[in-house]
Each structure stands twice: as structure tokens, then as C-alpha cells.
């Protein structure tokens, strides 16, 4: 059971949160110039790394804010969190 330090509320248990995908994920554009494969890349293709990854989480049952978490998918260690809008946290290997 993860304990995620929400930048707004402090450390809370996993069931209060919802995972929201890898970041950064840049939407390609402009729409008329986007190829099918670029669009598929954006919609479906993921790094899905085993190890450290930056991802977005939502504190659903708390402040309802989105924020960034650096997490290790192999050990579940949480290295850093930061509020949206702040510079993305560094991944320290």
C-alpha cells in the first residue's frame, strides 16, 4: 500500500489517489498535420519503464489536485513529488 506525499495535503494512503499516466506526454499538432502514426504514438505508445518514471497522479479523495510523482515501478519507492506548474522533478538514478 503506497503512501504518496501529496504536495498539498501531505502523505496519504494509496486508495485516496488515482494514477494518471506518464509525463511528459506532448500532444502533437496542429491537427491537420498530424499523421496517423504520430497520433497513435501519442494516444497509445508508452515507455512503461521498469524503474524510475515520472507520472501524474490525482488526489481524488483529498484536494482533487493533479501533481507529479517520481516513482520506481520495480520497488514502488517514491523519490519526489511536485505540484503541477512547478518544474518537473529530476529523476535521480
Amino acid at each position: 500500500m503506497l503512501r504518496i506525499p501529496c504536495p498539498w495535503c501531505g502523505p496519504r494512503d494509496e486508495p485516496e489517489f488515482r494514477w494518471g499516466g506518464e509525463v511528459p506526454l506532448v500532444r502533437p499538432g496542429p491537427p491537420q498535420a498530424v499523421t496517423e502514426s504520430a497520433w497513435a504514438e501519442y494516444l497509445f505508445m508508452r515507455d512503461n519503464p521498469k524503474g524510475l518514471v515520472r507520472e501524474r497522479w490525482l488526489h481524488t479523495l483529498g484536494c482533487r489536485q493533479w501533481f507529479i510523482v517520481v516513482r520506481n515501478t520495480a520497488t514502488h519507492e517514491i523519490q519526489a513529488t511536485s505540484a503541477l506548474g512547478d518544474p518537473l522533478p529530476e529523476i535521480r538514478p
Binding site: A40, E41, F44, M45, R46, D47, N48, P49, K50, T73
Partner: peptide, 18 residues
């Protein structure tokens, strides 16, 4: 579940989440 890991080693990505 390790498809993405090996794909990354071969230089491509997959629409897979583990």
C-alpha cells in the same frame, strides 16, 4: 509484462502498460 522493457532495448515502444 516485460514486453516494454525488451522493446525499449530493441529501440521501439509498445501500446502496453504493465
Amino acid at each position: 509484462g516485460h514486453s516494454s522493457v525488451l522493446a525499449a532495448k530493441a529501440g521501439f515502444r509498445l501500446p502496453v502498460t504493465s
